[in-house]
Amino acid sequence: MEVTFQFDWAAAFRSIPHLLPGIPWTLLISFGGLAIGFFIGIFFGLLRISPIRWLRWPAILYIEVFRGTPILVQVLFIFYGLPQLLGGPINALTAGIAAIAVNSGAYISEVVRGGVQSIERGQREAGLSLGLSRSQAFRYIIWPQAFRRMIPPLGNQGIISIKDTSLFSVIGVGELVRQGQIYIATTFTALEVYFMVALMYLAITWSLSIALRMLERKGLVGQ
């Protein structure tokens, strides 16, 4: 008996219109979640390096919990677990965005902390010696420099979070993988469809990489 593995290009192309509706969902969950995660990250990242000890530990706790547990468990917890506490269902989109937000927020906290701590002590001292208050020194001197250094690791986190949304097919949100699964169920063309799904992820993450490289190059002026 002869088995032939044939990649059916026609089937691959036929799947495209069925997969495309997943892209807005993937983008919405990842970028919505990342936008919230960014603010969570700034908040906990700065708390993490507060000079006041008891302000630091809630940040440490948050970071350890959400970095130390799988995002799949986090989204299942939010989608299936939390409604039991809240007494009402949470829709899958909200659950997905929330999971990306709290998960990326934990990593971004560490990015923020690393960025701020990487700025030489002399920068702050120069600002203070000129009469700037501590918050002015942070706002005008430390943060702008730290943010530039944060761009590459933030981009990294963005790409990871985009890929993480592929796990959210388990809660039935109609992102890329979910659309692929639905289509495969009727056509049995797993090879071609998952190949196209992979290409679409690559298109999204690659665009992000290019955009970030451009941003970085702009940010490098004067460094």
């Binding site: 030489e120 002399g122 920068q123 001292e125 120069a126 600002g127 010696s129 000129l130 001197i141 702008p144 420099q145 530039r148 004067g222 460094q223």
Partner: peptide
């Protein structure tokens, strides 16, 4: 009181 440091400590992101 103004201060000048050994390592200059200019702000690299500003002109």
């Amino acid at each position: 009181v103004g201060m000048v440091f050994q390592q200059f400590n200019l702000f690299p992101h500003l002109s």
